[in-house]
Amino acid sequence: MTVTEIDSLFIKSRAGDRAAFAEWAGRIERPVRTSLVRFARAVDVEVVMQETLLRMWLAAAHTRKSIEGENASLRLAIGVARNVAREELRRARRDAHAPLEDVEDSTEGIVEPSPGPDPGLARAIRQCFEKLPGRLQTTLAHRIHHGATRPDRDLAEQLGLKLNTFLQHIVRARKSMAECLRRKGVELAGVAS
């Protein structure tokens, strides 16, 4: 049996290897997020993504279940994500977590992990970021570097901006970057302007 690259990363996570887990998470994030699009009108997909990754970290650390089959860890994550989404839908009625055993065989459609980092895409994004006007670049950089752990109202205050001004800067930065990327022939999913 061959173990795929992402499953190898997930297996390393079992020994508490945070770097391996972060790399694994980056490789499965896109396909898992894509699998959740059908829930997007009902649940906050960002919540489902973060809860899914937390549960997968716990699963890596605390279960000894074997990882069998191609990209088994990705298929498991998609199953967990689907159950988390369903729990979100039921949250008002009850607060029960679905056991992992219920989702381990839940495959839907073609399941492929993201390829490794795309240097060309990353370079294009960085080039477009560098072209942003100063205030927009500062605001977007602050959101990117601190937005995972601090609310926008705090980030705005740190920059001496009103929250609405901060958000308008993000809007303008995103539109400017989307246009720049289009000129480079890059169409990121979700680019709207």
Partner: peptide, 30 residues
């Protein structure tokens, strides 16, 4: 949901470790 996906790609490209905001939030948590 499309806009979130777009922003996560940009974050991944600009983060020193190549982490999206989602991964950063989870790594902070664990």
């Amino acid at each position: 949901v499309l806009r979130q996906a777009w922003m996560r790609e940009v974050e991944r490209a600009l983060h020193p470790m190549g982490w999206s905001g989602t991964v950063s939030a989870v790594m902070e948590r664990i």
